[in-house]
Design a protein around this nucleic acid. Structure first.
Lengths: 295, 295
DNA sequence: GGGCTGCACATTATCGACAAAGAACACAGA
DNA sequence: TCTGTGTTCTTTGTCGATAATGTGCAGCCC
């Protein structure tokens, strides 16, 4: 079966949330930009909604008949794209299960295990190879290089170089650059989470991602910005399955972030560099420690 | 037709050069490592050579009957792997022909134009996307970002960061590290080419590649080492089609390389950094100038 | 015993096919 | 005249199939 219709299902679910009894849905082009899909998909959604008795659809009028109930939604696991499924499965395997460096990776086996075609797995592996965790032997298998201490060191070394450069560029941004407003919004978000840290410490990951991406953006360099994808995916999956000391670790990191943000706001290069170094070396330490306990 | 047998043809051609009348070819495993292919392929080659009357093959004896003539070789264009063909065609298109940034790239069209299946083109584009010259819009086309001045600036900025770090690491290598011997060999190669610069200036590209890769290697960081692939491919194709002032440019660069090598040999960080900066900014200038004339 | 050959089998690279998703265009309604 | 709809066509994402290529094992020869 070519292509699961995950785009359709996901958009359908999101569209269900837009329904308000008595009102009419907006025009097709408007729904397109709202849902981020093409008109073809929007029209499929509308047809399906008619069939489910959710709306009546006649040309421009799409009047809502009833509110959706739980069973109207597609199950969540059917809404994630194939590559996401492959990524999750694969990351689970190499970050959790026995993932000795040097192990061979078999496209066919992986495909069978996940229940997808080989092409999808292949393309995933090619895309994933840029993260430096696997390597291709042409006409032969892939080799797992493993999420080792060595890997983490290399990753973080480059990260430090890039982030120092980006942070300096950020501090030099003109005062009216929108990034400053975003930075302030992020600062507030940090303060909010911090105020209720015991129950909200898990939200740190998202703050972390947003802050660092905002800073990298200032470098105006696609290689630096793209590199952050590697950091993000590694940290994301690693901490997703290693929650030891998460509360303490995240609380500390939020404080560092606040210092970092303050330093950026001063726009003084030395202050920025100092705060940046401090935070990064602390992040390095956390990662290394959690690697040590994992191994 | 799945898989052109380019591995076989290329290895066959290379094997032809090993034939010496009166002697016997080495054992199958030995040929494998000599040609860098599997035993299956080696055996196919041997069978084919028997058929062509080039050798007689009986178990361990593979006695050479006659020397190969021109017609024994497979034509060269049949020996390059599909991905190489796609890469060349594609690079030609975006570095030479009209390659306005923002242009859409069409997998199907590209595949038809090159005469290959869509899968191969797709996989190439995915692999190639890490070079930052194209970007994917999921469920839609690829966007060409173009080999612009902006791109070149970003590329070279990162290159400088990395190379400075690698050069420093190189200077700190223990005296008995094999890299020092390689460096000396490279220095001699530079001197040789320089002595006959008027007729051999085109060999500079290869020297350049070898020297910089050797230096990056010292960083012991896969991200730095892998990044050099981007530099290499961009410089390779760009200068392949922009040979203006090549003699002069390469002559100057060789001299810079020699200075750089000398500086490394002193192992003094300041000397290394100075020579490195000098060479890199000169390389940046050349690239920018040739971009200006091209545009 | 250690390396080589013969053979059977596993895996990769590539293709064409097809449903899902996107894009183009002419017409209709405000 | 402009925005929305109906329709048609193109392109992408995914699959299974198949030749090329690689890999493992049992026996053979020095």
């Amino acid at each position: 079966m070519p292509k699961q219709n995950t785009v359709f299902k996901d958009a359908y679910n999101r569209c269900l949330r837009l329904l308000v009894v008595g009102e009419s849905l907006p025009s097709e082009p408007e729904l397109c930009s709202l849902l981020g899909v093409s008109r073809t998909t929007v029209r499929s959604i509308l047809s399906q909604m008619v069939e489910a008795g959710l709306i009546e659809w006649n040309k421009r009028s799409k009047s809502v008949q009833r509110l959706p109930v739980k069973t109207d939604y597609f199950p969540e696991h059917e809404t994630s794209s194939l590559s996401d499924v492959i990524e999750r499965t694969f990351m689970k395997r190499i970050l959790m299960g026995g993932a000795e460096p040097g192990m061979q990776i078999n496209e066919l086996e992986l495909a069978r295990e996940i229940g997808v075609g080989t092409t999808s797995v292949r393309e995933f592996l090619i895309r994933f190879s840029r993260f430096g965790l696997i390597e291709k032997r042409p006409n032969s298998h892939w080799v797992l290089k493993g999420f080792t201490r060595q890997f983490a060191e290399e990753l973080i070394d480059v990260r430090e170089m890039f982030e120092l450069k980006s942070a300096a560029a950020f501090a030099a941004l003109p005062t009216d650059d929108p990034a400053w407003a975003e930075l302030e919004a992020l600062r507030r978000a940090h303060v909010e989470v911090l105020a209720d840290i015991d129950s909200r410490y898990l939200e740190f990951s998202e703050l972390d991602d947003r802050l660092h991406r905002l800073i990298q953006q200032a470098s105006d360099n696609r290689f630096i910005i793209d590199f952050y994808d590697i950091i993000a995916i590694v940290f994301h999956y690693h901490y997703q399955w290693n929650k030891a000391n998460a509360r303490e670790r995240n609380g500390k990191a939020i404080l560092e972030h606040l210092d970092y943000i303050e330093a950026l706001k001063t726009r003084r290069p030395e202050a920025v560099e100092a705060a940046c170094r401090l935070h990064l070396s602390s992040a390095r330490l956390s990662l290394m420690q959690s690697l040590a306990t994992a191994a």
